[in-house]
Amino acid sequence: MKSLINKSRVKSPWLIHFDCGSCNGCDIEVLACLTPVYDIERFGILNVGNPKHADILLVTGTVNHRNKKALKNVYDQMPEPKVVVAIGACGTTGGVFREAYNVVGGVDKVIPVDAYVSGCAPKPEAIIDGVIIALGKLAEKGKRVDQGIFERLEQTQTNIKKR
């Protein structure tokens, strides 16, 4: 049963797309994946609007001090197992805005990232590739969840230890 569930995890990744102040270049490419040309629903991928239903978080754009809270909140509201894919130059590193006074940097400054898709903007094929890589990590994390190990709890443990 557990292996069946784990297999299903890979076959049914629902993703949520979060825009951290991107120029919309990457967003257009993300949405292009849904069109008949790429049709990611072939892989069981659905674009959902709610982190509580999602397995994969796609983040585009640079993270700044205002939206980092929202990004963290959305990430926290995703039930585990979950993976994060940072998309585009801005998402992965902060891009050309990296040195700006209000910018924190890439997505990985706020939440752990499992796959990086470079490009400005990346091609839909590249995004799909990134998601596929993330799926591998999703399966790994799924096994840990099956054993009752949750990242959320571990973080709380380490936070308590730090204090």
Binding site: F18, K52, K69, N73, Q77, G148
Partner: peptide, 14 residues
């Protein structure tokens, strides 16, 4: 068992 009590979804601004 493990169960997360979460705020309602408010577009990340909960």
């Amino acid at each position: 068992g493990h169960r997360v009590i979460s705020a309602p979804y408010m577009c990340g601004e909960q």
